[in-house]
Computed example of a mutant assay.
Amino acid sequence: MPAAVFVNRNIHVELHPAARSAYEWCMQYPQRISWSDLPQPIITGLSKEPLRGVMIKEEGTKKDNKSARHFMLYSPLWSIQLWPSTRPPNGTLLVSLSPQEISDEEVETAAWLSALSPLLLSVDHHQTAEIRDALVAHMPVKVHQKLLRAKVLSDPMLCRWLNISRGTLVQQRQRKVIREDEAIAEVPQSTDELIAALKKTRSPDD
């Protein structure tokens, strides 16, 4: 049964290992808003959103007779970006299960549901192909099968969800390749080109 407790200095908050791949993809998701520039009341409020995780207790030493607790976070993952330090603010509500009450597979599924929420609620149509390709690269096949009933999130599936044509995804990928090729072309390929680039007169805005 879930237990509720508030963050305090005796609770160490860490990312659950089974949530790592979902977290990495979540951190790569294109953001259209600079969260750090939001008004402080919004940042403070969102940074204290209740967290779900697994609580692991360690027996205290004879000296202090206190038990350390490790809260292994798996949802929501996006709130980590708003924490004022490497841990949630004191007073943040932690809703936890014991390791015996939830398996790593269930944690992984819950973490991916958390990571997918920005995609489902506010996807940027101009970056759909890039988001989809990154998702396929990070999400394990077993999670695809469990959540999507498919081995992979295919272009036709995503196009149906967003009511866009498959040609749109093709064009986005083509534009991405062009951008990458242009970026590579701008990098000096030889020592002479590098020296010439360094000798170029720079404008005051560079």
Rank of each mutant, 00 (worst) to 15 (best):
E108A: 05
L97D: 02
N65W: 09
S79T: 13
Q100R: 12
T44D: 15
E59M: 15
A110Q: 11
S98Q: 04
L46R: 12
N65C: 15
Q81E: 08
T44M: 12
Y74A: 04
T86V: 12
E101Y: 09
I80Y: 08
L94N: 01
P99N: 06
L51D: 00
G53T: 00
L97S: 09
N90V: 08
L73H: 07
E101N: 10
Q100G: 13
S96V: 02
K62V: 12
S47P: 09
H70Y: 09
Q100I: 14
V107H: 02
L51K: 00
S47H: 10
P88R: 03
L93C: 10
K48T: 10
E59R: 15
P84H: 10
L38D: 01
L97A: 07
P84C: 07
G91T: 00
S103M: 03
D37F: 08
L82E: 10
P99L: 02
E49N: 10
F71W: 07
G45M: 05
W83V: 01
L82Y: 07
S67N: 12
P76G: 05
R69Y: 03
L97I: 07
S67M: 03
Q81A: 14
V107F: 02
P41F: 07
A68T: 08
I42C: 05
A68P: 13
V54Q: 10
K57Q: 12
I42N: 13
Q81W: 05
P50W: 02
S98D: 05
E49G: 09
S96I: 07
M72V: 06
A68I: 11
R87Y: 14
Q40P: 07
I56W: 06
L93D: 00
P88V: 00
S85V: 08
V95N: 13
P39K: 02
G91E: 05
S75Q: 08
K62W: 15
V107G: 02
I102L: 01
H70W: 13
W78F: 11
L93T: 04
K57H: 12
T86G: 12
K57N: 14
S79D: 10
I80F: 12
P88D: 04
R52G: 15
K57Y: 12
Q40G: 00
E49Y: 09
G53E: 00
P76I: 00
I56P: 05
L94S: 06
R87F: 14
S67Y: 09
E59T: 12
S103I: 00
Q40S: 12
V107L: 04
L97M: 13
F71V: 03
K63I: 14
T61F: 09
S103L: 05
M72L: 13
